[in-house]
C-alpha cells in the first residue's frame, strides 16, 4: 500500500517536473503531497462516518470534559462529544473554503493581471493602484470585515477570503506579462496579425502558469490559517458542526480549568494541513525555479 502510494507520488512529481530537470528526489514536495492527500481522504471518509469512532455531533453517554483515555483518545468536550471524532471530520470547511477561495482569486486575479499588463495605459495604472491599496492592507482584517458583512457560512467565507487574495495573483501575472510582452515572439505574433485576445490566451497566459502554481500552494497554506482564524472569531460554520477553528474557540472557555486537549488537537490538525500545502509550495518553487534551490556553500 505504502509502496504503491510512493509510486503514484513519483509519477506525479515526474509529471510536474516533466523529467527535464532530473529532479526526481523532491522529498519536500512528496511529503507535502502525502500530508495533503491524506487529509483529503480522511476528511471525505469522515463525512460518511467511516473513520470516526463516535458521532462528532451527537451527545453520548460519556463523561464530560474528560482528558484523553483509552475510550476517548483525545478526550471529550463539555457536551460529551468525542474530540478525536470531531477533529477528524472538522477539516471540511477549511478545505472547501481554501480551495474555493484560491480558485476564485486565481481566476479573477490572473485575468485582471493579464489584461492590465497587456493593455497598459490608464487601465493598468488605475487597476494597479486599486490592487496595491488592497494588498497593503492587513489581509486578515479585510477578510474579517468582509465575512462579517457577507454573513457566516461557506459561501461568504469563500468570497471574503478569495477577495483578499486577488491582488496577489494580479501582481504575479502582471509582472510576468510585462516581461513576456517585450519578447520577440509576441512581436512576431503581432506582426502576423494575431488578435490581442489570442495573443493573451495562447502566448502570454501559458507563460504565467508556473508562477501562479507556486503562489497558489502558499496561498492555500495561508487560506487554511485564515479560515481557522475566521471560525475562531465566530464567523465560520454554525455551531453543532465540527470545525477546528470553532472547536478551539469553544475550548478556550475551559482553558482556565486546564482542559488542554480541547484546543491542542484541533490546532495540530490546522498546523499539519497548512504545513502540507506550504511544503508543496516549497517543492514547486524549487521545480519551476531551479536557481532558487539552496546553494551549497
Amino acid at each position: 500500500m505504502a509502496r504503491g502510494m510512493i509510486g503514484v507520488l513519483d509519477w506525479i512529481v515526474d509529471k510536474l517536473s516533466r523529467g527535464k530537470h532530473g529532479l526526481r528526489h523532491q522529498t519536500v514536495l512528496k511529503v507535502g503531497l502525502v500530508i495533503v492527500i491524506a487529509f483529503l481522504i480522511m476528511t471525505v471518509l469522515a463525512q460518511y462516518s467511516w473513520l470516526t469512532p463516535y458521532s462528532p455531533t451527537k451527545y453520548r453517554d460519556a463523561p464530560r470534559l474528560e482528558g484523553p483515555s483509552i475510550h476517548h483518545w483525545m478526550g471529550t468536550d463539555q457536551l460529551k462529544r468525542d474530540v478525536f471524532s470531531r477533529i477528524i471530520s472538522g477539516g471540511k470547511a477549511s478545505i472547501i473554503v481554501a480551495f474555493g477561495a484560491v480558485a476564485l482569486s486565481m481566476t479573477i486575479g490572473s485575468i485582471l493581471g493579464w489584461i492590465s499588463g497587456f493593455v497598459g495605459g490608464f487601465l493598468d495604472r488605475s487597476l494597479s493602484l486599486t490592487m496595491d491599496a488592497i494588498y497593503s492592507f492587513p489581509s486578515m482584517i479585510l477578510a474579517i470585515v468582509l465575512v462579517a458583512m457577507f454573513g457566516a457560512g461557506l459561501g461568504p467565507m469563500i468570497l471574503a477570503v478569495g477577495f483578499v487574495y486577488i491582488p496577489t495573483y494580479f501582481r504575479v501575472t502582471r509582472a510576468e506579462v510585462l516581461q513576456v510582452k517585450e519578447t520577440t515572439y509576441i512581436e512576431a505574433a503581432r506582426a502576423v496579425g494575431v488578435s490581442s485576445v489570442r495573443i493573451v490566451l495562447r502566448h502570454v497566459a501559458p507563460n504565467t502558469v508556473n508562477a501562479i502554481m507556486a503562489v497558489s500552494s502558499f496561498n492555500l497554506a495561508d487560506a487554511i490559517l485564515t479560515v481557522a482564524a475566521l471560525s475562531f472569531l465566530g464567523f465560520g460554520l454554525p455551531p453543532p458542526l465540527p470545525d477546528w477553528g470553532y472547536d478551539i474557540q469553544n475550548g478556550q472557555k475551559f482553558l482556565q480549568s486546564g482542559s488542554w486537549w480541547l484546543i491542542t488537537f484541533p490546532g495540530l490538525m490546522i498546523i499539519a494541513l497548512s504545513l502540507g500545502f506550504g511544503l508543496i509550495g516549497e517543492g514547486i518553487s524549487d521545480l519551476v525555479n531551479p536557481k532558487r534551490k539552496r546553494k551549497k556553500v
Binding site: 490559517l225 486546564g258 490546532g267 498546523i271
Partner: peptide, 23 residues
Amino acid sequence: HIGSFAMPLFWLGLMLQVIFAVK
C-alpha cells in the same frame, strides 16, 4: 522556519496561556 508559517497565531497564544499561565 517553515513550521512557523503554518502556525495559527490564536492557537499559539492559547497554548502559551495553557502552559505558561495556567500550568
